[in-house]
Nucleic acid binder design. Structure first.
Lengths: 144, 144
DNA sequence: TTTGCTGCAAATGTTTTGCAATATC
DNA sequence: GATATTGCAAAACATTTGCAGCAAA
């Protein structure tokens, strides 16, 4: 069973219908694995093969997939939400955002674990999740 | 010279006019030092004393103050921008956001400095800034 | 008196919603 | 065939902008 089929099964298990629109959107995320796609991005890609699809359907599908923990809805601060496959290890998965070209790079690190523990103790705050974003210039943009 | 006067002076130095609207908005941030106010929040507060003020003026003033590095414009992911006095030490100033009551707490830490250096070397990414947010339950909400 | 600033209303851009038609199960 | 899902258009929401009048310097 490939990745696409596994995702379809997850929808099916939760009694959600497998519509062509949902299939196409799932496939898009598989094809654009490295991209951090906005609703509009997905709409633009999907419309090429499926011109009759509505933007509202894209939004509804993305919300659904985020609720099912298939996608993660992320706010990069550029005025729209972006989606990527949920890593299920969000604690060690962070983003490097280039302020010049807007590209988003990923990196893994577990340095924050000890910081979290310190905060829990010092502030009595029970931490569920965190978000760490670095802004700067990627290699290419530095060269220019 | 008190804080308010110092801020007025900064506007004056940059050739910006000291209008009553700007004064009132500055005072609001002094009075709500601990709050992370949205444009709508500021508008609601200011309108009590100054009913004729326009929302657009609030937005324009907040943008101006952010540009002058007096305020910092922050995206907490709740669908609107929020503003607070710029700390001038953003690298060590982070936020704890309670997912239940929405309150925002602050904390300081310099643990990320070494992580930043590692990223610069490993990824060739020139880091200018970072944002670190922790989501969880504050003490009070845990007790409920 | 000269700009810069304001308030208003209209425009913008993203996301959500109401609803009748449609497709999945 | 029942019900979830769709596409469309309109609404909602935060924010921005155009512009004529106004006010700070």
């Amino acid at each position: 069973m490939d990745r696409f089929q596994a995702l379809c099964k997850r929808l099916h298990e939760k009694e959600y219908k497998l519509t062509p629109q949902r299939r196409v959107i799932l496939r898009t995320f598989i094809n654009y694995e490295t991209g951090h796609l906005s609703a509009e991005d997905v709409y633009g890609i999907v419309k090429k093969q499926h011109p009759e699809i509505g933007l509202a359907t894209v939004y509804r599908t993305l919300d659904l997939l985020a609720e099912l923990d298939i996608l993660e809805k992320i706010n990069f601060g550029d005025g729209r939400f972006r989606y990527e496959f949920a890593s299920h290890d969000t604690h060690h998965h962070h983003h490097l955002i280039c302020v010049n070209c807007g590209q988003v790079f990923e990196f893994e690190d577990d340095l924050l674990d000890s910081l979290e523990q310190a905060i829990q103790i010092r502030n009595g705050f029970n931490i569920i999740d965190h978000q760490l974003k670095f802004y700067g210039l990627c290699k290419k943009c530095q060269e220019k």
